[in-house]
């Protein structure tokens, strides 16, 4: 049976480390499919002007296209060239919730993320996405240093 792993990218070096670790694990497992995910942080409870609302759909499409092109597609291509099965997904939402939901929906065995993403103040007040994920995840989570 194919083992599914979810990898969270954050557009920084830390995400690259998570990806490298997932690639290493997949090599050890053998029959493995990697879901490379980038979550664009977004809240349905944020406030916007009417004009921003009117342009929101277009912006959303642009954000997804940019993240897919610059982050997810190169990562997926890299995994595929090394002989691994990989799929890329870009979603909007809360990082921890979204990674957890995709892992549940896809029946993943594990989520792999890297430590740190937000700055000090946000992390102190709300906790980092990583710590939120660790606390709420329905599958084991590996946090790469």
């Amino acid at each position: 049976m194919t083992v599914k792993l979810v990898v969270g990218l954050d557009g920084q070096a830390s995400g690259e480390r998570a990806l490298a670790h997932a690639q290493h694990l997949a090599g050890l497992i053998g029959d493995c499919e990697l879901f490379v995910i980038y979550v664009i942080e977004w809240s349905p409870y944020s406030f916007q002007t009417a004009e921003e609302n009117a342009q929101r759909h277009r912006r959303r499409e642009e954000e997804i296209a940019t993240a897919t092109e610059r982050l997810v597609d190169p990562a997926v291509a890299k995994l595929r060239t090394s002989g691994l099965k990989a799929r890329g997904i870009v979603r909007h939402g809360d990082v921890a919730d979204t990674l957890n939901r995709i892992a549940r929906e896809e029946g993943a065995e594990q989520i792999i993320v890297a430590r740190m993403s937000e700055g000090g103040f946000v992390r102190r007040v709300f906790g980092s996405s990583t710590s939120n994920l660790v606390m709420g995840a329905v599958v084991p989570v590996t946090v790469v240093a």
Partner: peptide, 11 residues
């Protein structure tokens, strides 16, 4: 949830 990123009812 797959429509996340669009204008929500709240917004």
């Amino acid at each position: 949830p797959n429509d996340a990123g669009e204008v929500s009812h709240f917004q």
